[in-house]
Design a protein around this nucleic acid. Structure first.
Lengths: 212, 212, 212, 212
DNA sequence: TATGAATGAGTATTCATTCAT
DNA sequence: GATGAATGAATACTCATTCAT
């Protein structure tokens, strides 16, 4: 009937991705609070009510961004670190994939993540994502330990994994702040820190506080 | 009769501390953005204009909080880790002091710090503080390496130190989130991660990426 | 039933005029500083955010008022003083139109103008408007002089025009302050001051300072 | 009794002048509203309560400035234009004194005056000052007219004088805005505008509106 | 006299969110 | 489905002015 081209009536899924793209961009550039829904809508080339209709409130929108980017990152890691490889190999490939991803999305993932850490509303989402990472790392360590016939308390395992994840995040920050740095080299450095320490643990070497 | 000063007209120095106390409390509870100057002033038992007169804008006030708390923390560490001790001892005492401090200010320092990481305006202040830490840690490592007759590129040193600091920050987060956790134990765990890895490096053991 | 539009959701252009009407009114009544955006918005029958959305900050709003009213005035003058008339006729018609306009907007234009003279932020806008007037007047004088075979330095011309404009502004003030005064009579008086003096200049009569 | 030098206990009159100096400076630089009592007090090297104690509220302070500077200006004029001189000589000397004064206080008198014109609270003070000027000018004109055996309606006289004063103020503005301009030359120009026109009037030449 | 300490009251500006069309 | 129009509610920041010492 109409000769008007159906140029704007894109399917919902496409529109949502456009919005998320814009949102990730703006949230990264401005930070969660300084970002305005106006700017996001404008950047997405869409009107504000549409954003609300599709992706909900500002907080929900941010969570959606976090979710999409986090999932992509986890997929990148999972795709690289196949579970049937030996532990050190898995760790290395995982780290390489992680830093590669962060390096390729310097103004996306790392910045969003940094934003989220400070705000209570995102604690839950963040905790979920971080636990997934911690789980993976702890799993690797545990697997390797058992292969050596050793065991370690779950809490300790978690804490150590937490520390490793923290170190990694910190280097991710460093990478995001140094645009010319090489992700692969960064991964190597992290591997040195992580694996050498872990290897010691694996072989039963532990440090104990002096009697004092 | 009483030597307690009258309730009002306190000298500036006193009022400033009261304000900072209130600000740390409110910023921690609400987060930087959600915190209102009104609430801070009220909590300090003073009117808003005084806050502005003494400590400046909201951002400046936050930086002042960060500064005071950061300085206190650094002093706690410096007081514990005398520079004439052997490296591992210094590291251990420093870590113990750090986690002790964080544990004792679970709703102050750690939360402020977490807030600051997400917001650009505080990047500079934070970077300064972190560099001081990184410098200290890197100094310890370098000192120990030279004692072993080894050397390491400055960049590598910095990155490793960065990772260690990151791991430590991460555990500090963990500690702040686990009210029942024991700071000393956390320090021990961190020491295990850090020192075992570092010790390897000190002895010339390094990990290298596989040929792929 | 009715073609009168519903009371709300008016198109932007309409609302902008309503806002400007209200702003002119309030700025005139209260003065720039004492005027509050709240009152302007309320007087326009709209919420404050709309004022900001359409017309910007308070200063920009004031400039917009100045601009609209100034343009209207210039149009009134231009419409009356056709460029093909003889100089004295043009001047007379221009003055009559000007004082007529001021008299008809005693509580609008003249007051705004008076406000603007005192505040630096409006200096540029004002200077622009005054230069346009000065230019017109200087143009008339110059035209008449050349017709008489005379010439006069550009600076002198500008200064004399400036003085005439100043005298006119001053009488406009006087008119605005005397609600019962007759604009036409005021124009006649101004014409006497201006034209008689100018006529002398046109005929080569000049005054020179005594030897002292 | 005390060996403390009586350095700060200046007599009241001196202190008041210091304050007025500072106030004139700050009001001129910032404008009435943007000027803060804090800055004025600081610039005067005195504490705020003293300013209030000596010179009253901000408005009263501004009026005091206006008053002092206005009086000084009137004195400068009166000292130059002795009442026993012929009218044109008086006018010329008066104008020369006026522009000389304005030129010598480019950031004082003229700016204060400009400020005051926009604000209702100063209307009374301003009106008083302007009438004194108008009176002087009108007196000159009237005197001269009577010497020629002519008369003119009081209103007309007032209005013409008003126009001349306005032209003069306008040139004073121009002078204040052109730091390199020569006051004496400006006075000459004003004299040309004013006197030539006035001379016509004095000789009975008047302009009348065309039948239209 | 002189001042540091203190505040009540006010204002511009912003933004997430939702109608009405 | 899509949007321009509209707003409630909140907040940082300022300033003239006055006590208490």
């Amino acid at each position: 009937m109409s000769t008007v081209p159906a140029f704007k009536r894109l399917p919902r899924a496409v529109r949502e991705q456009q919005m998320l793209d814009a949102a990730v961009k703006v949230f990264s550039r401005r930070g969660f609070h300084a970002a305005s829904m106006d700017e996001i809508a404008e950047d997405a080339g869409i009107s504000k009510p549409m954003v609300y209709a599709y992706l909900g409130t500002k907080e929900e929108l941010f969570v959606a961004c976090l979710h999409r980017e986090g999932t992509r990152m986890m997929q990148a890691i999972a795709g690289a670190a196949a579970p049937d490889l030996p532990a050190d190999d898995r760790l290395w490939r995982g780290l390489r994939a992680f830093f590669g991803f962060v390096g390729a999305h310097r103004d996306g993932w790392a910045v969003l993540y940094r934003q989220a850490r400070g705000e209570q509303p995102f604690a839950r989402e963040l905790a979920t994502m971080r636990s997934r990472l911690v789980e993976v790392v702890a799993g690797m360590l545990d697997h390797a330990l058992r292969a050596e016939g050793r065991e370690i308390a779950a809490v300790d395992l978690e804490v150590v994994a937490y520390a490793l994840v923290g170190a990694t995040e910190s280097l991710a920050d460093w990478l995001a702040d140094h645009p010319d740095a090489d992700p692969e080299k960064t991964a190597t450095r992290m591997m040195n820190v992580a694996w050498l320490g872990a290897a010691q643990l694996l072989h039963g070497v532990t440090w104990r506080p002096p009697a004092d």
